[in-house]
Amino acid sequence: MTPQNESKAIFRIWRGDATQGAFQDYTTEISSGMVVLDAVHKIQAEQANDLAVRWNCKAGKCGSCSAEINGSPKLMCMTRLNTLPLDQPVTVEPMHTFPRIKDLVTDVSWNYRVKKEIKKFQPRKPDAADGTWRMQQSDVDRVQEFRKCIECFLCQDVCHVLRDHHMHDQFIGPRFLVYAAALEMNPIDSADRIAELRDSCGIGLCNITKCCTKVCPEEIKITDNAIIPLKERVVDRFYDPLTRLFKMFG
């Protein structure tokens, strides 16, 4: 259904804090081209000044306004109202995988702690005397795909290892497997993260249901291009029978 100028819609927004909360309905005017974040802002400005919501760029580039819209993890700024059925209330709630702070704002600090634990970029010696490297575009295409990530954490939100099983202390989640893949596949990086991927990162916990890939607003092929190749590297290193044989007699 396409919203007409001056028509109205109902937004069922979760209001509350870390301990309690409930959905509350707001009716607001909508106009053509509006996205969910516009509606939330309009409600905030006119009806609920203290409604907490994160946002920055409003153009799908910063990954701040992640939420669950009608149950699906999405960026509010990139969800057009004309893609939603407006004859019923549009539900907007915070991401489920992270602790709630207030209204649509969640505590995502765990993500920042996890990233810091991953071995950082360590370039090999520069190729040229001026301290620069030579890389072919075809060799960096894959890494650039991963570096499109805007850290909206929707993939973390939807991942059942985190969302349903709460294994935050054993599994770094799709976002940081993509981060690790960008480092591991970087042609000039010289660090080795294969052992930590198996151990502290818990890559084995991912059973490739591809839920993360489906919600990625940057359309990164998280499972196929990042996680599976990393799993293969872990297998090659630790579980390949031939390699183990060599190691035994090596």
Binding site: P126, Q144, N186
Partner: peptide
């Protein structure tokens, strides 16, 4: 700019492999 590359930035490349 070169320093950013040393810190992990991945710029688009020229045909001879430098920063485009």
């Amino acid at each position: 700019v070169r320093e950013l590359e040393a810190w992990g930035a991945m710029f688009d490349r020229t045909k001879d492999g430098r920063i485009l």
